[in-house]
Design a protein around this nucleic acid. Structure first.
Lengths: 196, 196, 196, 196
DNA sequence: CATGAATGAGAATTCATTCAT
DNA sequence: TATGAATGAATTCTCATTCAT
């Protein structure tokens, strides 16, 4: 039931944007009265917060396997691609977590965002290991992490916000993945760097 | 006057998000009555639309010079960096243009988004020229354009939506630029590819 | 159990005012479900009604002794002081009984308010006896009863509604009692009226 | 218009109690939309606050003349009677000012309540002068002021809250005034104290 | 005896918008 | 050109109350 609400809210948020979804719309969708929502969630924000957490949990469970890849370059590629896949598979969660306009001062300071920090640190560690192997040279880890995360994020964000409408819509996911792999192929060549 | 309104709307949109800005707040800020706004704009959406157009005009005028760079790799780098700079210098416009949640069904179909299409075509042409010179091999132009645009976009978007808060705030713009250049250095080496 | 509810309601009414106390708050306080309350009381008003009755019973049991004082002047003084003491000792009851905004159309017409009438008659009888002894001359009993009751009531009411905040808070009860005795000393001199 | 709202609110507050009056009810009464109210008052509290101020202004303007009476005993009587008259003539104001359940933390700390303090000080000064003339002996001024104010207040409060329903309703105002004068005649004899 | 689940009614408030002036 | 006045519709949220279990 709680999950019925979350389900419904999630899909409405994705359709109309968080701000345009009223409690009443959520209630209508599950065919309950608005007051009922308040039995399960203190607030509209509480719904967002719950979805936020669910989203992070989902993302982490998806990335768990990738984190165990030994080769850092392969791991990094897998993480980036896994991130993009998450965005494409779960656009509602992704929007909330990484694209929504700040209304989350509460969220940002709380619990689950720590996962974000942790994940970011994992990314940086992986980059460090890549550098130890001669990859991604000549940059600070900070810049590299922002650049790589940003690349994956941006590709996803253009799709989710429908800014890439000049590309054929039904090929977009494939193009997105191909675009990311293109970046990776230059940044993280799987074969040992030839000239070395 | 019209521009007074736009000015004020622009800054409010950036601060609070489009949805959270009321006509009244805009009016208050310029010390006119809400009704006055309607003398200049049919709609709240019309304001957004106008800003949208202004934004594109600004972006194009900024990129004009870069478009004239002869070497396609250099041109491509300049365009990407110019794009990021635009995002960082004019975050209000950028948000509206590339990040705002769809309220633009109207906008997307209309006039100024053509500029977007045009710019995108220019990007693709440049990529084509790069490929002609042996760069950015082994990808479709569609994927490459999405990947490169996405990379620049994502770096900007993470900053503007404050998702990169685990990096030191005052260094963010510098890190963003460094991150992008890091990507470029692998994708678009300035020196002829050494091993060739 | 019924009394657990009443207890809890009484203290909440006093803190927040009758209107601001929800059934839920009462239920929370005793750690039962709101529905449970309805097993014991038909209504929110029914709770008020019950407290009302309890209050009157308490007041009467307190005044019983005073009623047996033989000397009417002393009895009158004792009644007035007892009334004030009740207000100060049991402000929750007092508020409900004598200060609450009318929500009592039901109550006023019913059962327990008869106690009020009876008590009032007792007051008037006592005044009559005082007049027979030469005290409280030159007034109708009606006016005298209203004046004396009003005096005690007003002193209490100013305290309970926190309107006497210009006097030092911790001395208020003492000042209230002293104020009332001051009135009594002029109205009901214990010594035979000197000039007579 | 502002005053139309205040008028309407005032009478509704008196009828139903502050807590039971909704903005919508006020709006309905003046046959405007609820939103209109917000053009003139920020808040429901703002309406209360405005009425509060109006009430105090009214009371002071009424008492101004009495304050100028030279003989302190006569002045004190006039003030007390003027106070009761105010309560009976303007019960809506009176209720708000002196009987309403505390919801006024804002009000109490603000502007107009100072008038209350000032008035209270005036009362105390007058009592002091009475004591200088041999009246109201043997009490602290604090207690005396609380007692006298309380007496007038209580008589009023019993009427306004309909607790004196055992007296004939149409004679209540007269009885109230007679009751107060009865108290005065003992506390503040106009003729020099006979036995002196 | 107790409650979890549910809701209709209503609260305060905000907003985009209109229109007569 | 500008606005003061007004509002219908919508928002979030609370509450007393019911009822099947």
């Amino acid at each position: 039931m709680r999950s019925r609400i979350l389900e419904s809210a999630k899909s409405l948020f994705a359709e109309d944007g968080f701000q345009n979804v009223s409690i009443r719309k959520i209630a209508d969708k599950i065919e309950y009265s608005p007051a009922t929502i308040y039995l399960y969630f203190k607030d509209k924000d509480a719904i967002l917060f719950a979805l936020h957490n669910e989203g992070f949990r989902t993302l982490f469970s998806r990335q768990g396997e990738n984190m165990r890849i030994v080769d850092p370059a392969k791991r990094l590629r897998a993480l980036l691609e896994g991130y993009l896949d998450f965005a494409l598979d779960e656009p509602e969660y992704y929007d909330l977590m990484f694209m929504l306009f700040t209304p989350l001062p509460k969220i940002l300071k709380t619990s689950e965002w720590r996962y974000g920090r942790r994940a970011f640190r994992a990314l940086q560690t992986t980059i460090q290991e890549c550098q130890n192997k001669g990859l991604l040279k000549n940059t600070s880890i900070e810049a590299a992490s922002l650049g790589l995360w940003g690349a994956a994020h941006g590709i996803a964000a253009l799709l989710l916000r429908q800014r890439a409408s000049m590309l054929p819509e039904d090929e977009l996911p494939a193009l997105a993945r191909e675009g990311l792999r293109m970046l990776e192929s230059h940044l993280l060549p799987l074969a040992p760097i030839p000239s070395a």
